[in-house]
């Protein structure tokens, strides 16, 4: 097979060449600098740095909170997408637009706003404090911040699929005697599954790298509420460049793996929808 299929359109060499050049300069070269720097550590030393107990604890916090946030969004995202597509209510267009707020709002702004709201003397914190629920400066605060910044992902991946879902399928199921709940479980949910998973994975990928919004609300207690990006910063502040790089490489590998997974999911999703 040739490298490229024949096409009458021009500009392949130009556009691909430019794409590769730009990609190399902006993304690949800097990232290989990271990998090269980390090769200054022996495999043994690298392993020792990335499995330090405090760093291990930060993975638990980061991945745990990201997973929880992505799970919360899996459900609330489905709910919001469902309501936006299927029901009508006042100011729907406005609310639909508002869902993208976390994409548009700078994370630092989100961080200070959430810290203000959920501090013990903040508007929500005051309500929760008598119930013994502390949000700001606890791991719960991290989950909250991550839930906020990843809220649009599931909504935006599920919404178009739900919109294109054919009513005939549901009608057919209904005429065969299925209840509404059965239809949801057996007909609708399986169709939405690839989109749900894609949204979930996207939210998870975005959450593990997040820094700006989390540091304002996390409390940053060692072993309890320190996130992995903070460990990189903390290593840097102790002038430990190699250590910072090693942890950064771990994060990079995880991100790349997640992206491969997401692209696989999207391919699966396209194939499934295509068949229908």
């Amino acid at each position: 097979m040739a490298f490229k299929k024949h096409s009458v359109l021009p500009g392949f060499n130009l556009s691909l060449g430019y794409t590769l050049l730009y990609l190399t300069i902006i993304v690949l070269l800097p990232l290989s600098a990271l990998l090269l720097k980390s090769s200054g550590l022996t495999a043994h030393a690298f392993w020792a740095v990335v499995t330090e107990p405090r760093v291990l604890a930060s993975y638990r916090v980061t991945f745990g909170a990201s997973l929880l946030a992505a799970l919360i969004n899996l459900f609330s995202g489905l709910l919001i997408a469902w309501v936006l597509v299927r029901y009508s209510f006042p100011a729907k267009r406005f609310i639909d637009a508002l869902v993208d707020l976390p994409f548009a709002l700078p994370t630092a702004v989100a961080g200070i706003a959430l810290a203000t709201i959920y501090a013990p003397n903040g508007s929500m914190g005051e309500l929760l404090a008598p119930l013994g629920i502390k949000v700001a400066f606890t791991p719960l605060g991290i989950v909250l911040a991550l839930t906020f910044i990843t809220l649009p992902f599931v909504v935006r991946t599920v919404q178009p699929v739900l919109q294109d879902l054919e009513v005939e399928l549901e009608e057919a199921a209904s005429s065969l005697g299925a209840t509404r709940l059965q239809i949801f479980w057996k007909v609708i949910l399986p169709t939405l599954l690839p989109a749900l998973l894609t949204g979930f994975a996207l939210a998870f990928a975005r959450a593990i790298g997040e820094y700006g919004s989390v540091i304002f609300i996390a409390g940053n207690m060692p072993y309890v509420s320190e996130i992995t990006p903070l460990m990189i910063i903390s290593k840097l502040e102790q002038y430990d460049y190699l250590g910072a790089t090693a942890i950064a490489v771990v994060m990079l590998v995880v991100s790349f793996g997640l992206l491969l997974l997401i692209n696989g999911l999207q391919w699966w999703s396209a194939k499934r929808l295509g068949r229908r």
Binding site: P229, S255, L260
Partner: peptide, 25 residues
């Protein structure tokens, strides 16, 4: 598909790591 994944990479890389790479360079 590899190219598409590489283009997506900056989206998933932690901003802190993004800053670090420029310090290293």
């Amino acid at each position: 598909s590899v190219l598409i994944t590489l283009i997506d990479l900056p989206f998933a890389v932690s901003p802190v790591v993004a800053g670090l790479i420029y310090v290293l360079m």
